[in-house]
Design a protein around this nucleic acid. Structure first.
Lengths: 112, 112
DNA sequence: CACCATGCGCAACCATTGGTTGCACTCGCC
DNA sequence: GGCGAGTGCAACCAATGGTTGCGCATGGTG
């Protein structure tokens, strides 16, 4: 069930700093590398690199305005990412439930 | 909303190889470093390191049997992890919905 | 018992990546 | 024109996922 595309999304969203950046972009409704770095414990350059990563996987996109580069979350793409992530969780949940079911079956057959 | 504990879980489960290892351990009902490495495109040593990581965050635990080390998934812990992950997704979903709601409100007030 | 092979752990090493500092450039505004 | 704010680029460092190579123990088999 795991594809290479999934891997890109996971690795994009797997980094704590990038997750917090997405949080900030969502709550503030966009931001630049400088404004984000002011609300994060990392430098502007680190933020810029992360923005590059998020841009490459399409989770954000930049709109240059004057000498600033304003980044915004691509909501559709983020929604898709959330769906991917939760689907992996769902798969694990299903397997866990199946294991429990099998365990119960064994219990029952042992009584018989 | 993001805690350091969350970060550990994410980074543990964020790696593609580790996710596939969890998949394999679930479907096969446990395994050793060698058996897992045979079903993965990486060496036994790489798998062993990952098993160490997963063990440290409590997602798996080893039971030595003879000269083998059999690893099994800690189901309760994995269930907890899945819950954590989906909660982040839920938070983003909520923010996305809230943004849409605000956008609609603006639309309406613009008409008035 | 002796032996061999199988499974494991440790150490050294490489590449990628998240992070830093430092510098150069460009744009907007006084 | 000149200065400050914002960006981009490059070099460098540390952590980590990955490899190879080796040594050690343990367990089945002659």
């Amino acid at each position: 069930m795991s594809t290479a595309i999934d891997d890109e999304l996971w690795s994009a969203v797997g980094d704590p700093t990038r997750r917090r950046m997405l949080d900030l972009l969502l709550t503030n409704g966009g931001g630049t590398a400088t404004t984000l770095s002011q609300q994060l414990p990392v430098t502007r350059q680190a933020v810029a690199k992360h923005l590059g990563v998020l841009d490459r996987v399409g989770l954000v996109h930049a709109k240059p305005s004057g000498r600033e580069r304003l980044y915004e979350v691509d909501e559709a793409q983020l929604a898709r990412a959330v769906a991917q992530l939760s689907s992996v969780g769902a798969a694990w949940d299903a397997r866990l439930r199946r294991i429990k079911r099998i365990a119960e079956t064994i219990q029952r057959s042992r009584k018989a």
